[in-house]
């Protein structure tokens, strides 16, 4: 598939209105981002979103149920001064609502013993639960480091039956952390690969029934923990990211078994990085279809099918969107794709 950067740039270019520019200046954002919020959410929704980005998110403790019962972990962490609240749609995971001054969540003895993993936010649990719903078997996690989703999948697969997580990433120092988590959490069903995910289809002979592509993105959904994202990604930078996201998705489809499911995930709320990317690839790959989530774990928002002058396939409404001002989580988008039998 030939992907032209200028074509993407032309498609996503936006000239912000005066209203968007003023609002952007006031809140420290790039104007094109605020223009997008106004276009999708209207003025009231855009302001709610911007306000939500200023609120801290609650970190999450995910129990390693292979080693410890979640009820026991809760008691042990509460004895240290943490307050935990069970996440109703993710068994064994807790929101941390209060923390003591010491120790930090990543330095307790329980953490070092592998009893749990710390997620910045609960949104990352969702693609794993959807992708592995009623599934047992091997999984390819293509951009896996530092390993939150890979260790979660390995844990679920070990508990439910069999399956190996092929956890790949390109960034070595992040892979070091992934290996550390696999060892710490005593997971023996993770294989750690070091490769550019875009060339895996040329090297790997194996095909997978489940693939997770948590694509490196602008991280626009994580502004609450990284405010530099308000002004880090210019439109050209965004076009470059989109090009890479399309390349990743287009190449990884080759590794999907017919009837298999690929989760395309980003921690971005930009339709350009999500519905646009999926639409681009599904337009070229007729064997690829967007599917409904197998279960409804929470009240997600629908995917965007029309945005400014861009019109996407109506199936993209099946994508899942998490909005910080609606769901109280990171901004997050998940599209489940299946390859026709």
């Amino acid at each position: 598939m030939k992907i032209e950067l200028y074509e993407i740039y032309r498609d996503i270019y936006v000239k912000p209105t005066r209203e968007a520019s003023e609002l952007a200046l006031e809140h420290g954002y790039l104007p094109y981002m605020v223009q997008r919020y106004l276009d999708i959410l209207g003025e009231k929704g855009a302001l709610e979103l911007i306000r939500a980005f200023e609120k801290p998110v609650k970190p999450v403790v995910r129990t390693n149920t292979l080693i410890v019962e979640s009820s026991e972990l809760k008691i042990r962490l509460e004895n240290l001064g943490f307050k935990l609240e069970e996440i109703p749609w993710a068994p064994g995971s807790f929101w941390v609502t209060e923390k003591p001054k010491s120790p930090t969540l990543g330095a307790t003895h329980e953490y070092l013993k592998g009893y749990y993993y710390v997620h910045r936010d609960a949104s990352g649990l969702l693609p794993v639960l959807l992708l592995l719903h009623e599934y047992s078997g091997d999984v390819l996690d293509t951009c896996a480091a530092p390993g939150g989703k890979a260790t979660y999948m390995a844990q679920i697969l070990r508990k439910s039956g069999s399956g190996v997580v092929y956890a790949n990433d390109l960034v070595l120092y992040r892979l070091k952390a992934l290996i550390g988590h696999a060892m710490r959490m005593r997971l023996d069903n993770i294989i750690v690969l070091w490769s550019d995910a875009r060339i895996l289809n040329k090297r790997l002979k194996k095909r997978f029934h489940r693939i997770l592509l948590d694509a490196p993105c602008s991280g626009e959904g994580r502004i609450s923990v990284d405010p530099t994202r308000k002004h880090k990604t210019s439109i050209l930078d965004l076009a470059i990211l989109i090009k890479r996201e399309i390349e990743l998705l287009a190449s990884l489809v080759d590794l999907l078994e017919p009837g298999g499911v690929l989760a395309y995930v980003t921690c971005s709320i930009a339709p350009e990085e999500n519905e646009y990317v999926v639409n681009y690839v599904t337009r070229a790959r007729r064997d690829l279809v967007v599917i409904d989530p197998p279960t409804r774990l929470l009240d997600y928002s629908k995917g965007v099918v029309e945005y400014r002058n861009l019109k996407f396939n109506e199936d993209l409404e099946k994508c899942i969107r998490l909005w910080p001002h609606i769901h109280g989580l990171f901004g997050y988008t998940i599209c489940l794709l299946s390859r026709r039998e």
């Binding site: 190996v164 892979l175 290996i179 696999a182 060892m183 005593r186 023996d188 993770i190 294989i191 750690v192 690969l193 070091w194 490769s195 895996l200 090297r203 790997l204 002979k205 194996k206």
Partner: peptide, 23 residues
Amino acid sequence: HSEEACASQLRLAGIRVLYEGGW
């Protein structure tokens, strides 16, 4: 760490496997 048969196949295909199996 232990060596896994499926990882050995990946190595043969020229993929860098950094870690696998049980510690």
